[in-house]
Design a protein around this nucleic acid. Structure first.
Lengths: 142, 142
DNA sequence: ACACAAAAGTTGTATATACAACTTTTGTGT
DNA sequence: ACACAAAAGTTGTATATACAACTTTTGTGT
């Protein structure tokens, strides 16, 4: 028999496939809510982090968010252009007043997105996400 | 007080942020294992699906995988170029012999990736993924 | 203070993804 | 069979992400 591996394996068990799908579904929900503010969920993550703990280097941000340094860098550039963040105190990145104002305005709609997704996930689903996060952050592959 | 929302909210609860992070971490692990085969995890998903259930339209594939039709279309194009898939029977997409051979060869390394990620997640984490998948697929937002 | 090594940050390149607008194909009523 | 509407597929455009290679900054030993 030519393709023995194919016959015996179960592709729908693929953890990567599942997580990518979960990611697409949830990202779609958030995107829908954020659209009026002309900002993406990734961008919002950065603003959220800095709105609570202002003044971080790129290294600190990329470690915290778990994103490759070059990806982070490009996301930051978009924020600099929109003046939501500033690198005036380079290498420290800070949120601007404009950025804080935006975050403050977005929060209610972000809460709507959270409600919508919580309705889908129930408490069980939200617990599941926290389980995954804590498992993966223990030894975030080096 | 100027930014009341910011003061009271908890950005690290953001479900979208968490899932995007989970996605980056797991994708990194799979990517590492797949690199020698010059294929991405998204591409592999398509080959996996068609290796088990050959002959699907783009519509069927995009519904099954939960991906926007234009995103799917571009992923398919890359497969046509590499001759892992064919649209000879358009609109039916089929896997080629070359595609099957690749899948058959990759499976052992894919299993290594699965082992690595299962070691991180434990059974608990894998259950969590299945919980999320079933919650989100029930009413995959229309 | 200087020289060098290590770390952080930047740029080039490729794939993944989604939305909007468009074109092609399919299906339905007469 | 034909006309039209609906669905499927395609293309333009933008952001997100990572890796490799490069540049700049930081830290350390003398």
């Amino acid at each position: 028999m030519k393709f023995q591996n194919i016959e015996r394996f179960n592709p729908s068990a693929c953890i990567s496939g599942k997580i990518m799908r979960i990611n697409r579904i949830t990202a779609n929900i958030f995107r829908k809510h954020l659209r009026p503010f002309d900002i993406t969920d990734s961008q919002l993550t950065l603003l959220f982090v800095l709105s609570k703990k202002d003044g971080m280097t790129q290294k600190q941000l990329s470690d915290f968010i778990v994103i490759e340094k070059s990806s982070l860098h490009r996301n930051l550039v978009r924020h600099f252009e929109k003046e939501y963040l500033t690198k005036q105190d380079f290498p420290i990145i800070r949120i601007t007043q404009k950025g804080k104002t935006l975050v403050n305005e977005i929060i209610p709609e972000w809460e709507n997105a959270m409600l919508e997704i919580r309705k889908l996930l129930d408490e069980e689903g939200e617990t599941a996400i926290n389980t995954l996060t804590s498992k993966l952050l223990i030894k975030n592959n080096p």
